[in-house]
Design a protein around this nucleic acid. Structure first.
Lengths: 147, 147
DNA sequence: GGAAACCCGTTGGTGTCACCCATGTTTTTT
DNA sequence: AAAAAACATGGGTGACACCAACGGGTTTCC
């Protein structure tokens, strides 16, 4: 009947719906790429944040990335098990763990960053560089949970 | 220490990351709004698509919305249980179910549409109408799984 | 200086969404 | 007539987001 499988739908003009679909595609692309290194998206995000922030507590990592403390425990567990980060008690505040990237972690991060960038290039392949920047700017303004 | 909890992060400039965060916020807003009617986002999406497409098979619904057939079964089950849609065997093709919206479904849809629109307005409150349209246009171009 | 309030990491759990493989029935294709 | 495809349904898994509680540590505030 219809060569176009897509009927115009009210739903598919809603930002929330489009965001969900685009996020799912982005996640699929990035996850598939990172799977080559045995990592998930969140692993890469945490590893990247640790590299930037230096020795940092799990709580601050969670605040920076918007990740639940419970989930952070599991993520750092995985990264530590693979020798990508070290987790040592913070001498200045014995509640905290000081999470720090290792040499192996830095090497791994270089690879996963390349993979992640490539996946994002594919995700935004239909956009010009200027459009991609604009998308990033718009998303940044609606992604924050606060008002 | 830092009044700004957010350190500049490489991750948070990636479209895939921003999409994930923005989608999570959008989903939270819409889900909270629809919870007042006892529905989830996917319920509303399917109900809306059924209203637009008229009597339609579950497979075509799934194709239109990008939902797995298995998940569609559960969604239509819920909608049918609540009397919002009818599911009758298609006389022309006995493999298919003809899903159709009911009067109750239409009433419910009017309310959930208002709730969904309101949640999306809040989601994009930081954007001008023109910016919102531009976001929709950009997302539409990267949301499609095909190339 | 002591109590109250708060923060940190951890364990326990739930719910939503995306996705996969398999099967029986019914069409369509060859 | 046989083979291939489509449909609805069942089984199951993995990734994220989120919530409640708790013990140990630290800060705040009387």
């Amino acid at each position: 009947m219809s060569d176009l499988p897509y009927a115009p739908s009210r739903i598919r003009a809603l930002p929330s719906w489009l965001l969900g679909r685009a996020a799912a595609r982005g996640h699929r692309l990035v996850a598939d790429a990172l799977a080559a290194e045995g990592m998930r998206m969140m692993h890469h995000a945490v590893l990247s944040a640790v590299a930037e922030l230096g020795p940092v507590s799990q709580a601050e990592l969670g605040r920076t990335l918007g990740i639940d403390p419970k989930d952070m425990v599991a993520l750092v567990n995985d990264l530590q098990r693979d020798g990508l980060v070290t987790r040592t008690p913070d001498p200045g505040d014995r509640r905290k763990n000081a999470v720090q990237i290792s040499a192996d972690g830095r090497r791994r991060l270089r690879r996963t960053q390349r993979l992640g960038d490539r996946a994002n290039a594919e995700l935004t392949a239909a956009l010009t560089p200027a459009e991609r920047e604009q998308l990033i700017a718009l998303l940044t303004r609606i992604a924050l949970p606060e008002e």
